[in-house]
């Protein structure tokens, strides 16, 4: 548990091309309480770009977010202990 209020801890998972760009599959981060999915995604995008691993903005515009294994809209508010996954467009199943 956190020692003071105002921050929450979430587990972030990266998949596909984002995992390669991040260099790892998961990371724990501390965020301000009350952060929405849309705000979180904007922060992630900026931090990838700061680290000079920016991909085409087309990729970031097409990413979906899952919170605790369910697709989440931008206005969903994150909570302490959430598992937040960044999902590039999926490509399972048959060939293109």
């Amino acid at each position: 548990m956190l020692g003071y209020s105002g921050l929450m801890r979430v587990r972030v998972l990266y998949f596909g091309v984002l995992r390669d760009l991040a260099g790892h599959r998961e990371v724990e981060v501390e965020l301000a309480e009350g952060l929405s999915v849309a705000e979180f995604l904007a922060f992630q995008r900026a931090s990838f770009q700061r680290a000079s691993v920016a991909e085409a903005s087309q990729l970031w515009d097409s990413i979906a977010v899952a919170v605790n294994k369910e697709y989440a809209r931008g206005d969903v508010v994150l909570r302490d202990g959430d598992e937040v996954a960044l999902l590039p467009p999926v490509s399972g199943g048959r060939g293109l």
Binding site: F15, G16, V17, P88, V90, S91, G92
Partner: peptide, 19 residues
């Protein structure tokens, strides 16, 4: 369904573009 594939070609590898 959150599944992704990386294609390995003779001359490199890429994550397949999803729809």
């Amino acid at each position: 369904v959150p599944i992704w594939k990386k294609e390995q070609f003779v001359d490199g590898a890429v994550w397949a573009d999803g729809e």
